[in-house]
């Protein structure tokens, strides 16, 4: 059994207990995660590293309620998400989780501000209130002047900023980032990491970031390594 505890003094925001995840490919069972434990403290910036195919994204998906564990429990903010129905899980994601993707995943048919507004459509906010929230989120990522632009007219770094604005616009409990700098050049990647650091330090946002870039993981407060379905603080040889 592998165990990694969060260093935050505020108590664990995320607690994974004895997590296993298997996939079935034909007649073969593939064990992606085995008997894994992890705690992430509130306000922590955790980097999750590992080689391709090690199960990093799978673990992130499990924490974000995008996938189901085969065995084990996941507790986020005191709620056991593995017991939730699909419908309840969707509502929980809307309230508590912000995702940042490697390829930004903006809707090309919507402007930057309409992309950022998407998660707010699931709330009871009025149109005017949604506009205020969107403006604030775009201001935080420094893209107020590009609000009406289509994603196609934005650079990769700018698109990722819009992606971050979309992730934080509902003020979620937890931000999950899957290789957020993986598709960016070094300079743009650094800008994104700085932005994430600022959100972590200044606004107390909790981040779990999957990356296999040591340069990116160096910006995190703590790094754990995943290899062959097991977690450790040491990078595998």
């Amino acid at each position: 059994m592998s165990t990694e505890n969060g260093s935050s003094g505020n108590g664990a925001l995320v607690r994974l207990s004895k997590i296993s995840k298997n996939f079935r490919r034909g007649s073969e069972d593939i064990h992606v995660l085995s008997d894994l434990n992890l705690e992430v403290g509130k306000g922590e910036f955790l980097a999750l590293m590992g080689p391709s195919g090690s199960g990093k994204s799978t673990l992130l998906n499990l924490i974000g309620g995008l996938d189901r564990t085969t065995v084990g429990t996941i507790e986020v903010g005191g709620e056991h998400i593995e017991k939730m129905s699909d419908r309840a899980l969707a509502a929980w994601r809307a309230r508590h989780i912000g995702f940042v993707f490697q390829f930004y995943n903006l809707l090309p048919v919507l402007s930057a501000e309409k992309n950022v507004e998407l998660p707010l459509l699931l709330t009871n906010l009025s149109s005017l209130e949604r506009k205020k929230h969107v403006a604030a989120a775009l201001d935080i990522v420094g893209l107020s002047h590009r609000a009406n632009h289509s994603p196609r007219t934005l650079s990769g770094g700018e698109q990722q900023r819009v992606g971050i604005a979309r992730a934080i616009v509902t003020d979620p409990t937890l931000l999950l980032c899957d290789e957020p700098t993986g598709d960016l050049d070094r300079a743009s990647g650094d800008e994104i990491l700085s932005l994430m650091q600022a959100l972590n330090k200044d606004q107390g946002k909790t981040f779990i970031m999957v990356t296999h870039d040591p340069h990116a993981s160096a910006r995190a407060g703590r790094t754990v390594h995943l290899d062959k379905g097991q977690l450790s603080t040491e990078a595998p040889e």
């Binding site: 995008l66 419908r87 994601r93 989780i97």
Partner: peptide, 15 residues
Amino acid sequence: TQELGVLKSMGFSDG
């Protein structure tokens, strides 16, 4: 397909 996945990840329910 992938965009629909993104919407669902944001909390858009299946319904």
